[in-house]
Design a protein around this nucleic acid. Structure first.
Length: 622
DNA sequence: GCCGTTTTCGGCCCGACTGTTTTCAGTCG
């Protein structure tokens, strides 16, 4: 059982207790336990086996430790089983719908005998919700909307939820004697933000041994089918996985075929036909003669084009580009030199300031920005101006404690309802890096929301906008916002747009990031990490950027620190309105592109961080 | 249920917003 699985059980227990009306602090303890487990760098399954392995983990006491041991050993725990009798899991799932919390779900259960989604849908459509105490017509409409939103993501899993298990399965199968290659294909390989199912393409070894190993994997909950070349299973997390065993001479063609997208494949087959060939999952053939199929490169080459990264295979313009040899050099995680959005336990993060900075350094970054919340998020311990002033010294101290990485004193400032910023100008002037974000009043009508964001972008101290559409995949739609207008203004003002890498945000999305780049907007890719473990989520931001076709030059935090400092200082001078040209956002070619990542680890060796000896922000006073 | 503890139980982040009310409950973050 993985940490994420254990965390999910604790989350479920918390919600069940909430519906039952249990002691709120007991509920919180389970929630906290879930968070701690999910973000813990070591697997609970290992720790549970070792004597005292679970001791001293903050948030995990005697009781939860025992439950973790139960879960690891038996897959469940008594409390969970008992609660499931009273509150079915399907009912727990209903609380994930926006606008439905434990109290209303409890009412639905007792008053209307709602036991699952289907019951709820029937009740909503029959107009029964509005009659319930605490409900009304608006709430009924909101539930209807929430059901529709959830529908679009139904049956699909966040890429992050499939990530570990897909890689583990591939490695598991690869370990079978004789197997030479095992690759997850499908939308997983194209790095879409959610995946419906997983296709695993395998070659080498005896098919029978491969199938044996596959269905025996500990994460397999159910075997749906098993044949000579194909088997299907359902995993404990609900994901369906199909494995196909193919001969080595077909591996590339099969990988290509099962990676898709369907539209991309159709375009390729058309091209093959133009050349008098035929393309299918077994290979590219001309009459009886096999032309290519062993590798993807071989197939693409035979069709007269460059190999296309899976992220681009959506039948946009990638085939034209591949034929012309003009595919972009897509950004990679190793191109990034900074993470510019992260929280510590000073606001609502879990790690201390020092731990977070050390983790960023360990991730190989040359610089980073610590960006706590502002005071509008009271529950998150948001900073007011006095707290920001105290923070100046704290940041200075951590720069001394942890050498070898430049630490920017940042803040994630709330955009208030009218477009004002949740921090006064004097305090803003103390910051090196200002990210502005929407966290409240997310249902404003489009015109109001657009005006609000445009006003915020106009503030001269703003460097970037965090998770610009505030969506939560499968849970909350993006805000109503005229993105064209927002990108235009951002380009004018030199404000970067963030690709937030939280797996359930990925915001900007690939599509919107592409639009932003086409309008000359600079992008930043950040994790918004609330723990050191979440720094790894950066990959999901990079995936979106790759799907958007972004080259490293488009992304601000690929710049070396000195260049980055110059860039944000230049943006600061653009504070007063001027005839907007996007020219200053054009990529600087050359310098940043050479030897990606080469300088990162080297920097920590000797160079003293400039920021450490200069606590005031570089652009202050300009 | 966890933590801290001046060891055995008291305290545990709460403000904004919405939609329901007619003074506040529920939800969100």
């Amino acid at each position: 059982m993985r940490n994420t699985d254990i965390a999910r059980v604790f989350e479920h227990i918390a919600t069940m207790l909430e519906i039952e009306g249990a002691n709120p602090f007991r509920i919180r303890a389970y929630r906290e336990g879930a968070r701690v487990v999910e973000n813990h760098p070591e697997p609970m399954s290992t720790l549970a086996g070792a004597e005292g392995g679970l001791d001293g983990i903050k948030g995990i006491g005697k009781d939860l430790a025992q439950k973790i041991r139960d879960l690891v050993a038996t897959g469940t725990t008594a409390t969970y089983e008992e609660l499931k009798q009273k509150v079915p899991l399907e009912v727990v799932g209903l609380t994930e719908l926006h606008g439905l919390g434990p109290k209303r779900v409890k009412t639905l259960m007792t008053e209307l005998h709602v036991r699952n989604r289907a019951d709820l849908e029937r009740a909503v459509h029959a107009g029964k919700l509005r009659e319930l105490p605490g409900f009304g017509e608006t709430t009924e409409q909101n539930v209807l909307k929430a059901l529709a939103t959830a529908d679009s993501a139904r049956g699909r899993l966040l890429l992050h939820a499939a990530w570990e298990v897909a890689r583990a399965l591939a490695a598991h199968v690869k370990a079978v004697r004789g197997v030479t290659q095992a690759e997850p294909a499908g939308s997983f390989r194209r790095r879409r933000e959610t995946v419906g199912d997983l296709d695993l393409v395998v070659t080498g070894g005896r098919a029978e041994s491969v199938m044996d190993a596959f269905v025996a994997h500990p994460d397999v909950a159910e075997v749906l089918g098993r044949g000579d070349t194909k088997s299907s299973v359902r995993l404990v997390n609900g994901l369906q996985v199909d494995l196909r065993h193919v001969p080595p001479e077909s591996f590339g063609a099969a990988l290509l075929y099962f990676t898709g997208s369907k539209a991309h494949n159709i375009e390729l087959r058309k091209l093959a036909i133009e050349k008098g060939c035929s393309l299918n999952e077994y290979g590219l053939t001309k009459g009886e003669r096999s032309i290519a199929g062993r590798t993807e490169e071989e197939v693409y080459r035979a069709l007269g084009m460059d190999w296309i990264p899976p992220e681009l295979r959506e039948a946009g313009d990638e085939i034209t580009q591949a034929l012309a040899g003009t595919l972009p050099r897509l950004i990679e995680v190793s191109d990034l030199r900074a993470d510019l959005h992260m929280h510590t336990d000073r606001s609502d993060g879990q790690a201390t300031l020092e731990q977070m900075v050390r983790a960023a350094k360990a991730a190989g970054y040359e610089y980073c920005a610590i960006t706590e919340h502002s005071k509008a998020l009271a529950m998150a311990n948001g900073f007011d101006s006095a707290r920001v002033r105290r923070s100046v010294d704290e940041i200075a101290a951590v720069r001394k404690q942890v050498g070898g990485i430049h630490v920017l004193h940042g803040l994630e400032v709330d955009i208030l309802g009218g477009g004002g910023l949740d921090l006064d100008d004097d305090a803003l002037a103390l910051l090196d890096w200002v990210v502005i974000s929407l966290h409240s009043r997310l249902s404003q009508p489009k015109e109001e929301m657009t005006a609000r964001v445009l006003k915020a972008l106009d503030h001269p101290r703003v460097n970037a906008m965090g998770h610009p559409t505030a969506r939560r995949i499968g849970q909350r739609d993006p805000v109503e916002l005229d993105l064209e207008a927002v990108f235009e203004r951002a380009a004018e003002r030199g404000v970067a747009m963030e690709i937030n890498a939280q797996p359930d945000r990925v915001d900007l999305s690939d599509v919107n990031a592409r639009l932003a780049a086409s309008r000359g907007v600079a992008l930043v890719i950040d994790t918004d990490a609330h723990s050191t473990a979440q720094l790894e989520h950066i990959r999901y931001g990079v995936f979106a950027a790759r799907r958007a076709g972004l080259e490293p030059e488009r992304v601000l935090n690929t710049l070396r620190f000195a260049e980055f400092e110059r860039r944000i200082a230049r943006s600061a001078r653009k504070g007063t309105p001027r005839g907007g040209t996007t020219g200053t956002n054009e990529p600087r070619t050359g310098a940043s592109r050479k030897a990606p990542g080469a300088g990162r680890k080297a920097v920590s060796a000797g160079r003293k961080p400039a920021a450490a000896s200069k606590p005031t922000r570089p652009r202050a006073g300009q």
